[in-house]
């Protein structure tokens, strides 16, 4: 099985190369077509036309588009994603600094979405045929229609402002140090033994992660429920009943694992969407992740930075899909044999 998994992963990574090339080229073209002039923006407002022209030549913007892309690509291959125009720092470095915070947020949100989604799906299914079913059904549809930024605002207002239970700005309480080992704050605070920082980081993570998780759990809930309905039509469920197994045992021991396969496929797709969903939530909670960086970059028409962040999103989604496919092989014995 390990050999099979390795083959799968290697294949996926190889096929990621052309995808990344296409995406980066697309991003590059679209950004250059935008009616913004990075040369003018990088200079003070009182710069003369000649100065702007000189700057444009210096930045290579006078070259034809394919050539510009080739220059960028050569740099990117050497780890140089260009300099941020607004922040005047290396774009790759900026991304590397903010990415861990976003991954941390997305992972926590996914865990919450999975727990709520799977639990809710099992509950929804369990309530089938009871008087509570239409009610639960309605509730899940209402949940399904609330997007993550709305959850962000609701949670912020209720738990942050009204009840004042949890903090709602930043990554840790002001005044606490930010230890840096791996870039992942939860991990780093534990590594350096600062439990106060760890706790504060956890408390800061609750609301944004919950907002994202709540927004994505209903889809998982409903897919799991409908997969369970499909699985319950299968002969092996009837046969399990005829063997006298209890309903609970049939649901958890037999049906759940089968129904989780289609759910997993969906969760993989969802995680890509969830990852981009971090953007709005980060803005709402002033969370110093890649999303906030992206918003600033867009506002400043910071083309090199937008390009670097956009590509990073693409890489993350590809990696997640690879991971989900690998997990699928682990869970589905039919895919394991050759």
């Amino acid at each position: 099985m390990i050999a099979l998994l390795l083959t799968l992963i290697v294949r996926r990574l190889l096929s990621a190369v052309p995808i990344l090339l296409i995406v980066s080229a697309l991003l590059f073209c679209v950004l250059r077509i935008l009616p913004v002039d990075p040369a003018a923006m990088s200079l003070p407002p009182n710069a003369t036309i000649e100065e702007i022209e000189a700057q444009r030549r210096a930045m290579g913007l006078d070259q034809p588009l394919p050539q510009q892309y080739a220059i960028w690509l050569r740099g990117a291959l050497h780890g140089d994603f260009g300099r941020s125009i607004a922040l005047r720092r290396d774009a790759g470095e900026l991304v590397a600094q903010t990415l861990p915070a976003t991954i941390q947020l997305a992972a926590c949100a996914m865990a919450i979405a999975a727990i709520l989604g799977l639990g809710g799906g099992l509950l929804l299914f369990h309530l089938r045929g009871t008087v509570l079913e239409p009610l639960a059904d309605l509730a899940s549809i209402v949940l399904l229609s609330i997007p993550e930024f709305l959850w962000g605002l609701i949670l912020l207002f209720v738990f942050g402002v009204l009840l004042q239970w949890l903090p709602f700005t930043g990554q840790v309480a002001p005044g606490l140090p930010l230890p840096h080992v791996t870039g992942f704050l939860l991990l780093d605070s534990l590594l350096v033994g600062r439990f106060d920082v760890f706790l504060s980081a956890c408390r800061h993570l609750v609301l944004p992660a919950l907002a994202l998780g709540l927004a994505f759990s209903p889809t998982i809930m409903r897919v799991l429920r409908s997969s369970l309905f499909d699985v319950y039509l299968e002969d092996y469920i009837v046969q399990a009943r005829l063997r006298g197994l209890s309903e609970g045992r049939i649901l958890l021991g037999h049906a759940f694992k089968n129904a989780s396969l289609p759910t997993l496929t969906l969760a993989g797709v969802q995680f890509g969407i969830l990852f981009s969903g971090t953007l709005l939530v980060e803005v709402i909670y002033s969370y110093p992740g890649m999303g906030n960086l992206m918003v600033d970059a867009v506002r400043n028409a910071d083309l090199p930075l937008i390009q670097a962040i956009g590509l990073t999103y693409c890489v993350v989604v590809l990696l997640i899909n690879t991971a989900v496919d690998s997990l699928y092989v682990v869970l589905n014995p039919k895919l394991r044999v050759r």
Partner: peptide
């Protein structure tokens, strides 16, 4: 009482053997 009998005292052989075993369990 019925569940205690099913599987132990009363057993069933199904029509579609290929689909009557759980595909994800050995």
């Amino acid at each position: 009482r019925r569940r205690a009998l099913l599987g132990r005292a009363i057993a069933f052989i199904p029509q579609a053997p290929m689909t009557s075993l759980n595909p994800v369990l050995t």
